[in-house]
Design a protein around this nucleic acid. Structure first.
Lengths: 314, 314
DNA sequence: TCCTGATATGCTCAAAGTGAGTATAAACAG
DNA sequence: CTGTTTATACTCACTTTGAGCATATCAGGA
């Protein structure tokens, strides 16, 4: 067939769809995984799929048993980690960020949710700066910086300082990807040591993933931490009705840092993002909390306009 | 060959790379085009390309004769505007935003730069709100809203109001894409009327482009208008040495709105984005202006950290 | 030489936004 | 009824912004 020859001339490629699907379960930010937490769900873009997003929704819904709310494209990669370079055929991966609530308990067993912070222990600053930073990460990065030539030493350490908020700089929770890449570059994550001696004690704590999936997860987290500040996306991971503290805990879980309670409430109410349901819940321990719901009208407005949350802005 | 059968099973697709390359020429924001302004430069992703970006840089440099500075991925589309749905083969397009300065006069003739605002006359608010909005766009959008069913009328008009800053709302220069999509949906751009009667007088002024290229351009402009506020990308379109007013004019050109001079200077100097060269230029008319250059150290810092510009933040 | 016009640059100020603390209310366990 | 816990209201200092006024330094013509 002529069509096939043409195919080869045009250098066609395979397309893989890959998803970072996030929810909040028991106050923890989690991602949907497969293979016992070692990979993100992914599948090929097939002829039956009406569009890229449709393809993605298709098999994510198949896996989790309920629809994805918010879906947003993350990035398109080519030739990541190719093994055989002589292959005349190539593949690209299109990654997405999805948000959902894990309401459906029926399919619970099918789903393998894993906490973000199992993969990135250094990213959870909700209660305090994780000790692993001072105890393991910084010493090893210091070593990595020092072993560079005289010219690069300073530059390397400055990157470290920026990424981890040293020298009086503030911790910037958005730099998830930069931090992971720094650790990768320094050979401190197992993924970077495939071909080297498997010196486990020279890496840094945190579960690894297949190929570059952990990198994609980092990309998704970074995107969400940025987006949460100016678009009302938090509500995608919230149940229909919630207290303001629930909402705050969700924001904190995603941002990985604590939020000033009073200021949080001020901003939320000021912007009229939510409305009272009229009911309260006493399940929170102390004084009963008012229950709120997301203001539906905002869905139209704020999707286009902006939102604010009291998290330090980069 | 077995490989070919496998190919078909895997539903391979063609990959097209497409670029929004922007520069500032004579104070105007311009995009690189082909076919007398009717299309964005694009080309297939080929086997010889080391990576997606490499492929893009490859033929953009080939076309323009000088290297792209800043390159950033925009979005990946599939099956945009497919004509024959029965085709068993598909194509995806990966779009990029590129920034450059048009220093090289040698290849000048090869390049076809076109002003953004030729395609989007309603986006240039530097001197005043373009009259086309009041005179043509809003009346026709009003008509479009009114012809909707009772349920949708309000919703449609609210979208219009949000997009164009009506009812006391401020003009938001970032909504380039939303505005274009609104006009598209209302059938007010020629691209949307392919299959309808070619009633030219029912569209809105602004040069059209092939297939969805104008939409991609809108995406690029929107991205740049957002990015300029928190990353030092303006400098990618600036010559090595410039006055603060030059810099301001560049920001204004991209943002499509005027900037308060004194506040602009305050922010730029506060953040130490630039440093004096020690020289001045008298070419500006009045009192000679100091010449500045971008502070190289910032390249390391701010790529990771942030920047601020005195443009209303969404 | 001395205005005039033009731009550059410095400085002030009020309004709004933000970070952080204090005080009071409403439930429950014992 | 007392202590504990969480919810919610209010205050205040400080920073950031938007906007205007004032002064400096040049070119060119009266």
């Amino acid at each position: 067939m002529n069509a096939k020859d043409e195919t080869d001339q045009r250098h066609d490629v395979q397309v893989e769809l890959i998803a970072v699907v996030t929810a909040i379960i028991d106050g923890q930010p989690v991602a949907l995984t497969i293979s016992r937490g070692s990979a993100l769900p992914s599948g090929p873009f097939e002829l039956g799929h009406r569009s890229l997003q449709a393809g993605l929704r298709n098999w994510v819904e198949q896996q989790t048993g309920h629809p994805l709310g918010y879906v947003e494209q993350l990035y398109t990669f080519a030739d990541r980690d190719r093994m055989a370079e002589d292959h005349a055929r190539r593949a690209i991966s299109i990654s997405y960020l999805g948000l959902t609530r894990d309401e459906n308990t029926e399919y619970q067993s099918k789903r393998d949710w894993r906490s973000w912070y199992g993969y990135f222990p250094w990213e959870d600053h909700r209660t305090a700066q994780p000790p692993v930073i001072e105890q393991t990460i910084l010493p090893r990065l210091r070593h990595w910086a020092d072993e560079a030539g005289a010219g690069n030493r300073e530059e390397r350490w400055q990157r470290v300082a920026l990424c981890f908020g040293l020298d009086g700089r503030a911790w910037n929770e958005e730099l998830v990807l930069q931090r992971y890449e720094l650790l990768y570059e320094a050979g401190l994550v197992p993924e970077a040591r495939r071909n080297r001696e498997a010196g486990r004690d020279e890496t840094v704590p945190g579960n690894q993933m297949a190929v570059d999936h952990r990198r994609i997860l980092a990309t998704g987290i970074a995107r969400l931490r940025t987006k949460i500040k100016y678009r009302p996306v938090v509500f995608e991971v919230m149940p229909p009705v919630f207290t303001l503290l629930h909402l705050q805990r969700a924001v904190e879980a995603l941002a990985g840092r604590p939020v000033h309670k009073q200021n949080f409430r001020r901003l939320i109410e000021q912007q009229e993002l939510v409305e009272e349901t009229g009911k309260t819940t006493a399940e929170t321990g102390g004084r009963p909390a008012k229950l709120f719901r997301f203001r539906p009208a905002v869905l139209v407005e704020r999707t286009v306009a902006g939102t604010k949350l009291p998290i330090a802005k980069a």
